[in-house]
Design a protein around this nucleic acid. Structure first.
Lengths: 183, 183
DNA sequence: TAATCCATGTAACGGGTTACATGATTGC
DNA sequence: GCAATCATGTAACCCGTTACATGGATTA
């Protein structure tokens, strides 16, 4: 049982999903490819943390819809009380910034402009997600969801993503302002 | 040539370092263990990106002090102009937050309090680093270093770390305020 | 006397990416 | 016609961590 396994169980605590769905939904929290997820799901199913139901579809390939077992629910609770690993951020840009004084101005400006565009696009997605959350059934008419609400966690994470996005955007703009365009 | 390789070259663009030094200094930007770094350095040396000088020491083991070759400098410049990979953040806590509504209040509060303590400790380190930078020779008497200054990048990164730290701290406090202690 | 720092390395293993493989449907 | 989306899987490879290995100096 590694972190990705628990991540999949966390998603399944909310609702049942196909492997493909899980792969898409886990990306913001723990990037992983389908080639990593499918074998893991098979293993988790064999060890009775999850089970699946084969769902035939018209006009689309059949799918396996996974859900948590009792053992899976217990494993999740136990994991929650274990000490949490420190966050790990790997960003190639940070290495490039470190040696920025040795590169030319235009390259540096382009790198930052690209990152700024990336943040802008991410921001759009987060706002979309927030809007989506607010349209889900059970969302309170006014204010935030209560801590016991199933969407509480998703809301907190979307807010976190937006806050970080704003800070990163601000940093990019600040650095660009220190690198005026050459005439 | 992977990202870590370029990271090591970036550090060596600033100054010569031993493998041990490189291992310590690359941590904030690209976490890596000595067991990954030593073989990489050997490979980079074989392929003529870097060279080393054996420096005997009294009261300490001898060390290999690495520096960039001309080929290494060129490789760095080429790399700088290549498209930059998107940042990847892996944080176990985000997965736990996602399923927070299924855990008990006390566990959740403890998790966030632990993370808050982690951020506080990190903050202390960043401030220390900033103070250290400002004491380095060549640091301007007033204002920031110019973009051509060798310490420009390190300064930007330290500022970025502090900005992110503030945002993360704020988020933790906000979430804790939503989870009042049980009586 | 035990732990930590400096300093270097190798071996085994698990985590993660890329590529290979298949196939129907929908939209440009 | 080509790319993307849905849907699942395997194989090869690279990246990263843990553990094994050594050894003197300093510090608690």
């Amino acid at each position: 049982m590694n972190t990705l396994s628990y991540g999949l169980l966390s998603l399944l605590a909310q609702s049942s999903y196909s492997g493909y769905d899980l792969m898409l939904r886990i990306q913001p929290f723990w990037p992983a490819k389908h080639s990593q997820i499918y074998p893991l799901l098979a293993k988790l199913e064999q060890e009775d943390y999850i089970r699946f139901e084969l769902v035939p579809q018209r006009d689309k390939p059949d799918k396996k819809v996974y859900s948590l077992t009792g053992k899976g629910q217990e494993a999740l609770k136990d994991w929650f009380d274990q000490p949490t690993a420190e966050p790990a951020l790997r960003d190639e840009m940070m290495l490039k910034v470190f040696c920025m004084s040795y590169a030319d101005r235009e390259s540096a400006r382009k790198m930052l402009a690209d990152r700024l565009a990336y943040h802008k696009e991410q921001r759009r997605k987060y706002e979309h997600k927030l809007a989506e959350l607010k349209e889900r059934e059970g969302w309170p008419e006014a204010g935030l969801p209560a801590p016991s609400h199933p969407l509480f966690g998703a809301y907190l994470l979307t807010r976190k993503a937006i806050m970080s996005n704003e800070t990163n955007t601000e940093w990019c703009k600040w650095v660009l302002s220190l690198l005026p365009e050459a005439d």
